[in-house]
């Protein structure tokens, strides 16, 4: 079964969107806004202040009451789109698609279409301005030898990153194959500009040799943005590639994290049955969750600089 997890618009969703520590690179925005959206859709939500009520966790409502199954797809939670309120030309719509590790690269053509369609439907629009793709295993500072970035381990370690190794970065040919899919979207006018994430100078150079439509954007995670290596800045300028900042981790949804969020543990949503949860009368789903991809979308009202809509979809396969 396919699971489609959604956050809805997280902009007015409260503290889940606020990062607490500077230079924190994390997926907490995704995970906490998923949790918050689930909670909001459960009719009797677990008390958020778990510290005081840990003695007797409240029973969670059956997941069927707040999710929706269509054919072989389960929407978690039940979802209906929130179209943008102003005419299309008022917006700058950016979509970032995270391809995940351990997913065969040849499925990406389909995944990309699917992700774009979800976002278009969500925002009630027919095109996006910028599509950035993030390939598994690429991490900017490790890749670029000229980089004088500090050691990545000095960032607050995120336990999820360690639990699910990103694996080695893909070779340029595989990346380029995926890119050709995006070039088609670009040709069709569905996407005006394409972008990549975390490419260092040498990778970028090799990549440009392989592609027809050049990326307009290279998104870089910068804990301290003033330390981007000069050669990269010059190279990007020369090729008219904008270097944009972001704050996501590359492996945005490790397998364990998803199981945590959906599981039957104290902080789980109670969709998946736990290991020793056999007394459940089949009320919960069983099987192995395999994260497939994650997409983040942001719609900004251009001439006001206001983020009207931002959210995530995460898709996983449940194999039982």
């Amino acid at each position: 079964m396919k699971l489609i997890l959604s956050t809805s618009n997280i902009m007015s969703g409260g503290p889940s969107v606020i990062r607490r520590h500077f230079f924190e690179k994390s997926n907490t925005e995704l995970t906490s806004s998923l949790r918050a959206n689930f909670t909001a859709h459960q009719s009797s939500p677990p008390t958020p202040t778990t510290t005081t009520s840990s003695t007797s966790p409240r029973p969670k409502p059956p997941f069927k009451s707040w999710t929706k199954q269509q054919d072989n797809t389960l929407w978690i939670p039940t979802h209906s789109p929130s179209p943008l309120s102003e005419p299309r030309e008022s917006y700058d719509i950016t979509v970032k698609l995270f391809y995940l590790p351990n997913v065969p690269a040849d499925t990406r053509c389909l995944q990309t279409r699917e992700a774009i369609n979800l976002v278009l439907k969500e925002l009630g629009t027919s095109s996006i301005d910028l599509l950035i793709v993030s390939f598994p295993g690429i991490s900017f500072d490790a890749d670029d030898e000229e980089s004088d970035l500090e050691d990545p381990s000095s960032a607050p370690p995120s336990d999820t990153d360690a639990a699910d190794a990103d694996g080695a970065p893909e070779d340029i040919e595989t990346i380029a194959t995926t890119w050709h899919t995006l070039e088609k979207l670009h040709e069709e006018g569905l996407v005006s500009k394409l972008g990549i994430a975390e490419f260092g100078c040498s990778r970028l150079e090799r990549f440009l040799g392989e592609v027809k439509v050049k990326p307009s954007v290279n998104q870089i995670n910068v804990r301290d943005c003033c330390v981007v290596p000069k050669p990269l800045i010059l190279y990007a300028k020369h090729h008219k590639i904008e270097l944009l900042t972001h704050n996501d981790c590359t492996n945005v949804l490790p397998r364990g994290t998803l199981r945590d969020i959906l599981g039957s543990g104290e902080k789980g949503a109670g969709v998946l049955a736990g290991e020793e949860d056999d007394d459940d009368d089949g009320e919960k789903l069983k099987g192995e969750v395999m994260p497939q991809w994650v997409v983040k979308y942001t719609a900004v009202v251009k001439d006001r600089g206001v983020v009207e809509s931002k959210g995530y979809f995460a898709v996983a396969e449940l194999k039982g």
């Binding site: 902009m11 944009l244 900042t245 942001t298 900004v300 600089g305």
Partner: peptide, 25 residues
């Protein structure tokens, strides 16, 4: 959460180029 972290989170949601972000920092 603090006004600066709120602003930082806003900037995280925007497409800001590296040099601009550095200047804003």
């Amino acid at each position: 959460p603090g006004l600066i972290p709120l602003v930082e989170s806003y900037l995280d949601s925007m497409n800001v180029d590296v040099e601009t972000r550095c200047d804003l920092a």
